[in-house]
């Protein structure tokens, strides 16, 4: 699986209130949530993000609330994947459960500017900055999480168990 998209670059500790402010949590409609995605961090994001774009962030992305609305909003906004130095644990778990692709990498951030084009090769675990012509390794996805993805997510694996 490969993604290619434009980078929206953000800093460290992007919390779930920035990803989707609680004032919009009176609905769980993905389209509604997508309209306000990243609103308090970057008011232009929701209206300008293109399908296939990539969010690139520093450490501890998704800290704070357990709201699954956060990965739902990002996915519904059309974002192909999130790359961060690290994730808050509930956000990490939620993303795998609901099917938002997320990757960890320490090096891409410092070598990439906002608006650069990244190509992500999931099978090879590689992230290429097409604009700058440099390739980086993503941290491998833990085997258990890979199996969860293969099973089609947590609920699908439960359905299969009967």
């Amino acid at each position: 699986m490969k993604f290619k998209g434009k980078v929206w670059k953000y800093g460290a500790d992007i919390d779930t209130d920035k990803i989707i402010p609680a004032r919009y949590l009176n609905t769980s409609d993905p389209k509604e949530l997508a309209k306000h995605c990243m609103e308090d961090e970057d008011a232009a994001f929701a209206s300008k993000v293109q399908p296939g774009d990539i969010i690139l962030a520093d450490k501890n992305f998704g800290c704070g609330s357990s709201r699954e609305h956060a990965p739902i909003a990002i996915k519904a906004a059309g974002v192909a994947c999130v790359i961060a130095k690290s994730y808050a644990r509930i956000f990490y778990r939620n993303s795998f459960n609901m099917g938002l692709t997320i990757l960890e990498s320490d090096e891409v951030q410092d070598a990439t500017d906002n608006g650069d084009v990244l190509e992500v090769d999931m099978d090879r675990g590689e992230i290429t900055n097409v604009t700058k012509g440099r390739t980086f390794k993503a941290r491998p996805i833990p085997p258990f999480m890979q199996e969860l993805i293969k099973a089609g997510g947590l609920m699908e694996s439960i359905r299969k168990r009967g």
Binding site: S65, S66, R67, E68, I90, N94, L154
Partner: peptide, 23 residues
Amino acid sequence: GADSHTCTYGALGAFSTGVGSTD
């Protein structure tokens, strides 16, 4: 609990943790 502050119950000597809605 599908609420991040579910960790509160550690005060009682329980293991408690926040998860998302799918969990």
